[in-house]
């Protein structure tokens, strides 16, 4: 018998927490993107776990679409990082404070 779904769900919750902590504390835009990937993977793991528990392939289809959107998001995000780096010679988000009121 497979391990209960709750183990995987708690693992995904902890992974999401680690990702959100990193997103809030790190200041390099690249590392922040990696933390977003961690959080997306936590959600994917939850989808697959519920898909197995409920025997519904719809959860796996959702993961498929999340992966596509994540790939598009990383492409555009890294494009923005490259464009910002050209102007500011830094990927630290602390330096992008010109819109501050």
């Amino acid at each position: 018998m497979n391990v209960p779904a709750a183990w995987y769900l708690i693992l995904a919750a902890v992974l999401f927490g680690i990702g959100s902590f990193g997103l809030l504390t790190r200041r390099s835009a690249l590392i922040m993107f990696m933390c977003i990937e961690l959080m997306l993977n936590a959600v994917n793991l939850t989808f697959v776990t519920f898909s197995r528990t409920l025997s519904d392939v719809g959860g796996q289809a959702s993961v498929f679409f999340v992966m596509v959107v994540a790939a598009a998001e990383v492409t555009v995000g890294l494009g923005i990082v490259v464009a910002v780096f050209r102007r500011r010679s830094s990927t630290s988000v602390d330096e992008l404070s010109e819109l501050k009121g």
């Binding site: 497979n2 995987y8 690249l30 993107f33 990696m34 990937e37 993977n41 994917n44 697959v48 776990t49 898909s51 197995r52 796996q60 993961v63 498929f64 992966m67 994540a70 790939a71 990383v74 492409t75 890294l78």
Partner: peptide, 24 residues
């Protein structure tokens, strides 16, 4: 793989580890 999502596991390695991290 442990939760019978074999195709997604393959895509995970190919797309995430193979493409996205290489892009990073």
């Amino acid at each position: 793989v442990a939760q019978s999502a074999d195709f997604l596991a393959a895509v995970q390695i190919i797309v995430y580890a193979g493409a996205i991290v290489v892009l990073f």
